[in-house]
């Protein structure tokens, strides 16, 4: 099993390298730093000097891949955009944003608020969604099931933004239960986080319930469930002890991939509620066209995804004896 995990870890390296090369190509080849500078400085009548200055301030004035002007061999390769901007990411050195602030520090500071929002959404969401799906599956082939599915389809047809806008309007603006947006550390955060968490859970209720329902139904139709019924077990026991246990395999593995992303936060929820997490950081960077931040977030995102894949493999070995012992 250890060999299996080590192999999966090693497999991650070429993927990260691939992502790195891809982003490098996208950010520095498709458009040159000159293009970026011109866009940032305004398009009309930009002097070449201004462009050169902009590039130099941000370290974009170096050659892309090979610095023939540099003295030593290491400098020839090291003193380049590729090394400075791409290779350094592997040690989580992201450099400065286009507005000059250190990206690494910013990310560290914003990780916690993101997590404070995303973790409750994840845990509460998983519990609520599984419960609902079990209920619907329990009443399969009845009107409850039918209307439950219809409700799910209707709920998943509503854009997440309307859940946020509607929730903010009803709960904050009309009923004044919680502040409409903002964030504070410590105990106070609960006040600010309650609404986004509720909305996060409800917003994904339709899609998740429907998906989990199909997992449950797939299991329910298997032979071992019939065996369990033949033992004289009640439908509830069958559902919880047999069906749930087996359906947890696809549910968990689907959910585990998402765990590392909890650090990334949710783009729109954070930005609508003014929570200073990584999600709103990303949105702001995109809006202000800060390429350095976007590039860093792409790398972090891929890194977390790969961690998620590894966790998935691990969780398989935990929940499925066929993989643990096979």
């Amino acid at each position: 099993m250890i060999a299996y995990i080590v192999r999966r870890t090693l497999y991650a390296i070429p993927i990260l390298i691939g992502v790195n090369l891809f982003t490098f190509a996208l950010f520095f080849w498709v458009n040159t730093p000159d293009d970026m500078a011109r866009m940032h400085l305004g398009l009309k009548r930009v002097t070449p000097e201004a462009i050169a200055k902009w590039k130099q301030e941000r370290g974009y004035d170096k050659p892309l891949l090979f610095n023939s002007g540099a003295p030593g061999a290491t400098e020839k390769l090291g003193d380049t955009i590729f090394f400075e901007k791409s290779i350094r990411m592997f040690v989580f050195d992201f450099g400065a944003a286009d507005d000059g602030r250190d990206i690494g520090r910013e990310i560290k500071a914003r990780m916690l608020p993101s997590l404070a929002l995303a973790l409750p959404v994840f845990v509460v969401g998983l519990l609520v969604h599984i419960t609902f799906a079990l209920l619907v599956a329990f009443f399969r082939a009845t009107y409850i099931d039918f209307w439950g599915v219809v409700l799910c389809v209707a709920m998943m047809s509503i854009s997440s933004m309307f859940y946020i806008i509607g929730g903010q309007y009803l709960i904050s603006k009309l009923w004044h239960l919680v502040p409409i947006s903002g964030f504070q550390g410590g105990v106070d955060s609960a006040k600010f986080l309650a609404l986004p968490v509720i909305i996060g859970v409800i917003g994904s209720l339709g899609a998740a319930t429907r998906l989990y329902r199909t997992f449950f139904l797939e299991e329910i139709n298997k032979d071992y469930v019939r065996t369990a019924r033949a033992k004289g077990l009640s439908e509830v026991t069958v559902l919880f002890k047999h069906v749930l246990k087996n359906a947890m395999i696809p549910i968990l593995t689907g959910a585990v991939v998402a765990i590392p992303f909890l650090f990334m936060g949710s783009l729109i929820t954070e930005s609508f509620f003014g929570i200073p997490g990584l999600g709103s950081y990303t949105v702001d960077a995109i809006r202000s066209q800060d390429f350095a931040v976007v590039r860093s977030m792409v790398f972090i995102g891929s890194f977390l995804y790969i961690v998620g894949l590894l966790l998935t493999d691990l969780s398989y070995t935990l929940v499925d004896p066929r993989i643990r012992l096979g």
Partner: peptide, 29 residues
């Protein structure tokens, strides 16, 4: 498989953001 795992590992919104920003630069220039 390597190709799609790599592409898949980049969070969708970020990839789209990066690409669209680049397109916008292209259109503007």
């Amino acid at each position: 498989q390597y190709l799609y795992t790599t592409l898949n590992s980049i969070p969708g919104v970020l990839l789209i953001a990066a690409a669209v920003l680049m397109t916008q630069v292209y259109i503007d220039t």
